[in-house]
Simulated assay, not measured.
Amino acid sequence: MHLALYAPGLGYYAHGSPKFGAMPGSGSDFVTAPELSPLFGRALAAQVADSLAATGTDEVWEFGAGSGALAAQLIAALDALGRPPARYTIVDVSGSLRARQRARLAPFAARVRWADRLPEALRGVVVGNEVLDAMPVKLLARVGGAWHERGVAISEQFWHSAHVDTAPEAIKTEANHNTPRTFTWADRPTALRPPADVEGAHDVVTEIHPQAEAFVATVAEALRRGGAGAAFFIDYGFPEAEYYHPQRSTGTLVCHRAHRVDDDPLANLGAKDITAHVDFTGVALAAQQAGVDVLGYTSQARFLLNCGLAAMMEASDLPTRATAMKLLAEHEMGELFKVIGLATPGHGAARGFAQGDRTHRL
């Protein structure tokens, strides 16, 4: 999954395809909330401004900034709220996306910078919209009652059809479905287990998230060392009890291409996004074990409404209201997407979770 998404020059996030956009005609593969409506960033900025005040900090960090749309919305909204960030730092592994971000954020160039990694200590507010879902997962398969780790192997059909000396080049250049399939799934017995038992004796495929949880722990540790800060992650996912529910027996791993979803990550490698839902219980535990508090956990719809989105919509024109409704509607982004807030001790209550907090369900 890491190679398919991030291999230099070949991975999905390492080349220059459009990726983000509202319609397939643009050549894009999916749309994110800040691309859909400028009100997303304005509403989130209300919470970010509160957290900058609560922690006495003036820096914002964003992971996986995409096209730069959220960064532009946040900086402009924070300026309007009287909490202008002294510095806005973006951490993004994609060179092609960095170039787009620089162009979009040119009006704020004096305050925006890019970093390759987090510092050891961090003071400020961290945001991440749809970043955890793009972190590589491990696949676990319970087959006949025994757990296996499901990995990727070279298919027998491919080896029989390609000379061994030319096979590596053939793997790189496979471009159509008429050629033998290069990769296949392979299971190996493992001691790894999901964090919650999956009831029943039926076969199950699911995911665990060591990389995403290690990332959250790293962010939490940096905030703790810095002495003051907060983090807000917005993504699609579930608490543990829902994630590992026995009826979710095929897992959540899917691919996005041209605004269509498929469940075959071994096809068209590098040409589509591969993603898995987030286990928010694991995120919360990783943060707590690293020494920070969970401020709250709720649906995206409830979080945005708590942050004033309804009033923003009321003051907007009809087209803006219509697109903003997709941020709230249960059958769109409102319920599937969740928000979790983390902070160093002493932050106090967060407006984004004032009503509808679901922390007790993590």
Rank of each mutant, 00 (worst) to 15 (best):
L105V: 05
A106I: 08
A115F: 08
A115R: 13
D116A: 00
R117T: 13
L118Q: 08
E120G: 12
A121R: 13
G124W: 10
V127K: 08
V127E: 10
G128Y: 05
N129I: 05
M135D: 05
M135F: 15
L139V: 14
A141H: 15
G144P: 03
E149F: 04
R150Q: 14
A153N: 11
S161I: 00
A162K: 13
V164N: 00
T173G: 03
T173Y: 12
T179Y: 11
P180G: 04
R181A: 13
W185L: 10
D187A: 02
T190V: 09
A191Y: 02
L192F: 10
L192Y: 09
L192T: 08
P195Q: 08
P195G: 05
D197C: 02
E199K: 07
V204S: 00
T206Y: 01
T206A: 00
I208V: 15
P210R: 09
Q211F: 08
Q211M: 06
F215I: 01
V216E: 04
V216M: 03
T218V: 01
T218K: 01
R224L: 13
G227I: 07
G227V: 11
G229P: 05
A230P: 08
A231Q: 02
A231G: 06
F238Y: 15
P239H: 06
E240N: 00
E242F: 02
